[in-house]
Design a protein around this nucleic acid. Structure first.
Lengths: 267, 267
DNA sequence: CGACACCTTGAAGAGGTTCAAGAAATGTGG
DNA sequence: CCACATTTCTTGAACCTCTTCAAGGTGTCG
């Protein structure tokens, strides 16, 4: 229901998520124009269509114009900026958020390696949200006119682009269900399950995760205040469902979380 | 922010929305295979790319395989059904809704003439929501493989499809903002403004509208209970902002509604 | 006309927010 | 590397918005 999981799994073996500490503090902000080989990228199965001939594969690599590093706390793009490219996340973690005129803002999603951001910009040629790196990150820059050009020729790429957009629509449907009909505990449980599932699809543990965002950002995403998020974490700890040490979360009972999500309380 | 308005306007003159009464009671449910001429359709500017050569126009008409009539209360497609086509609404009014395992459901959108539904089905080849006609309706059936085929050849169509999907993503971002950070009055005000704006873009009044959905459906969309919707309508009436006679709504002060949306109460 | 769906309104209650204070972690500059 | 400033997190108590439960009204359709 809240799926944001790309179709194929990445690695069979279980990795441990690295600590939050700056991974590459000295990385320059400027765009790099190093030629990229998607065929060697270990995110290949996440962000590229499957079943390509090697000739097609070669062509698709042309789509990735360059890579770009984004330091934690800085933006990949901002509301109002001209739209030129989609971005495939290689490493790092992003949030996207929209703002209303009176200054409220709403986190609309958290994105991790292998996911694509920037789709919001297509319709008006300008971005309508901010994409902020929550940790040092690197993305593949994919100019959209190149994508369109090539997807006319490579059917699998065309289909792939359509699916990525459709997946985002379906994901947002799920978030609407969450925001429109769930209570605080259900929202947080759904959030944790979704995060850990996506991390697991990337080879990380099913039971442990490191939150890359603050309580306030979680709250914004879930339509709750940070205090409510904090209290709900505490309640889950009291109930023996999870352990929390700052941003480290260990899930003791996935089933309990699932039950919380699937139980309409008081019904 | 809540825009779901297709780029171009349709008719300059102002029409009056017809009453709810069944428009075409005797319409058969079966798909009709009448050849359709998009070039004559008065929704052309809403659902087709602009600036086509007449040769391209001819080709695009091939995308519309047939039309289909949907009686009020019945579904165009359902969660779980195989995805084959996108649908352009010719007449009528739809809601789309998703359901969770425990039986809750959430209205994810209301769609009117000139808008396209079915995008949710692309990613998994199956629909993930229901599309229900809230009044007798007619849609153009556009098989998706035809769309993909042709959008490889007609650049404007390719671009158009991408924009439609991106627009839906941006719309849902706006709904997330609404659900995540607005209070009841703000939500209802935003809802009314959005509806009337979209109707106006189709040549209807800026100040009058007929709701095609129940209070409960509005509530589901806005994350509120039907009683809250009803009470909020009453409050707007008391405040002299709108007049309500059942599903007839007359907006007395658009500015007041705008102010409600843009004012973070108590801040 | 009667059955049914839909809408309105009131009163009580619950869940989440707000305000406030303090603790823990993080980052910065000397 | 330590001290201090800052950000982030936790917890309590009062408050408020929205929900829940209930009853009655209105409109529609067979």
């Amino acid at each position: 229901m809240l799926d944001q999981q790309p179709a194929p799994l990445l690695c069979p073996e279980t990795k441990t998520q690295p600590a939050v500490k700056g991974a590459s503090k000295v990385a320059p902000l400027i765009a790099q124009t190093i030629k990229v080989a998607c065929s060697n990228c270990n995110l290949r199965e996440l962000c590229m269509p499957m079943g390509l001939t090697s000739a097609e594969m070669d062509r698709i690599e042309d789509v990735v114009a360059s890579r770009r590093k984004i330091k934690r706390g800085t933006t990949l793009f901002r509301n109002g900026e001209k739209f030129t490219s989609l971005y495939a996340i290689r490493t790092g973690f992003f949030k996207t958020c929209v703002a209303s005129e009176d200054g409220r803002d709403q986190v609309t999603g958290f994105q991790m390696a292998g996911e694509v951001i920037g789709l919001d910009g297509i319709v008006n040629d300008h971005h309508t949200c901010d994409a902020v790196a929550l940790e040092d990150a690197e993305v593949c820059v994919m100019p959209f006119d190149r994508i369109e050009e090539l997807s006319r020729e490579v059917n699998a790429l065309q289909r792939h682009v359509h699916k990525i957009m459709s997946r985002e629509i379906v994901r947002e449907n799920g978030v609407m269900l969450l925001l429109g009909s769930m209570r605080a505990e259900e929202r947080l449980a759904a959030f944790l399950l979704n995060l850990v599932q996506r991390l697991h699809a990337r080879g990380f543990s099913q039971h442990e995760l490191v939150l890359r965002m603050t309580r306030e950002e979680i709250g914004s995403y879930l339509g709750l205040k940070l205090e409510t998020v904090s209290r709900t974490f505490s309640k889950f700890v009291d109930d023996g469902i999870i352990e929390v040490k700052q941003r480290h979360v260990r899930i003791l009972s996935t089933d309990a979380l699932r039950e919380i999500v699937n139980t309409k309380m008081g019904g």
